[in-house]
Design a protein around this nucleic acid. Structure first.
Length: 288
DNA sequence: CACTTGACCTGTCCGC
DNA sequence: TGCGGACAGGTCAAGT
């Protein structure tokens, strides 16, 4: 599920739900999704309290009182689901989860001292959780190469244009998906941003005008801001850590709207494959 | 080097 | 209904 807006929504939810809680025990299924040793877990996780929940790009960081952090990447299908028996009223979407979790997609479970739990579920097993010293997070390869946060106040159109210029011979969709250019954009918001800027995803970066790149910068930020405000995008079954559904898909202009009318010009939206990903475009108002 | 493709996994949907 | 193949909101390694 997660691009920047979804991960940010999870971060905000967890901030409300788990800060101050003390970890009582932890279980995980395989080393692949959680490579730390039992000794690491015992020394740096068990008994620790949650100090902060942060995000960089699509990576979540749960900072612990031991000076270590849990780094979490949800990849395609990861979810963090908080279950606190007293938190949800009758009929709430999370009520059933109290009894249904853990299930076969559960990779990691954190049990807190107060009886509440946090589950990391991941159907496709691409995601991961790892424990490492908080101070070492900036040194991991991903953090070394990842680009700026698109919504940060000091990220300018000029920065964006300069970073795009490093990928002149690839198409603009691949460049937007490249986390070293800008952090946090994924398949949904790449398509939505390019529609907003009336640029076809297959266009070579070197063929974009400065005006187009400036407009793309503006549209990308508008899309990301709206998506964060709406709690991200959710499929029919997903609920976030707080049991709320994201509603951005109600506002999507092209993503998963193939066969429907373009909201700007009325042409029929097409689906194709660009940069190895399913791609949604208006064939008329997005210029190749 | 820059860029593209395949691999990692499981579940679901769609066409025969 | 059964089966095969394509596909799914990401990233890295290996290939050209």
């Amino acid at each position: 599920m997660p691009e920047l807006p979804e991960v940010e929504t999870v971060r905000r939810g967890l901030t409300n739900l788990i800060i101050g809680k003390v970890v009582k025990s932890e279980t995980h299924d395989t080393e692949k999704g959680f490579p730390n040793t039992p000794q690491d877990v015992k020394q740096f996780l068990i008994g620790a309290s949650i100090v902060d929940v942060r995000r960089r790009a699509k990576v979540l960081m749960i900072d612990l009182s031991t000076g270590y952090s849990l780094l979490i990447h949800l990849k395609m299908t990861g979810q963090l689901v908080f279950v606190g028996e007293t938190r949800f009223g009758a009929g709430h979407p999370n009520d059933s989860l109290v009894n249904e979790l853990p299930d076969k997609s559960t990779r990691v479970t954190l049990d807190f001292e107060d009886g509440t739990k946090l589950f990391f579920n991941d159907q496709r097993k691409f995601g991961w959780v790892r424990l490492l010293p908080t101070a070492e997070i900036p040194n991991i390869p991903f953090m070394q190469k990842v680009g700026p946060e698109p919504l940060s106040a000091d990220f300018t159109a000029k920065d964006f244009i300069q970073r795009l210029a490093r990928r002149p011979k690839t198409n603009i969709k691949a460049a937007l998906l490249d986390q070293s250019v800008v952090a946090g954009i994924g398949n949904i918001y790449a398509d939505e941003s390019l529609w907003g800027a009336k640029i076809h995803p297959t266009r070579l970066v070197s063929l974009l005008t400065e005006a187009e790149m400036t407009l793309l910068y503006t549209e990308m930020r508008a899309v990301m801001n709206l998506a964060v405000e709406k709690g991200g995008s959710s499929n029919s079954t997903y609920v976030n850590a707080e049991g709320k559904k994201g509603s951005y898909m109600d506002f999507a202009r092209v993503f998963r709207r193939e066969g429907l009318e373009c909201p700007r010009c009325g042409s029929i939206i097409e689906k194709s494959r660009v940069a190895g990903r399913g791609t949604h475009t208006c064939p008329v108002c997005q210029v190749i």
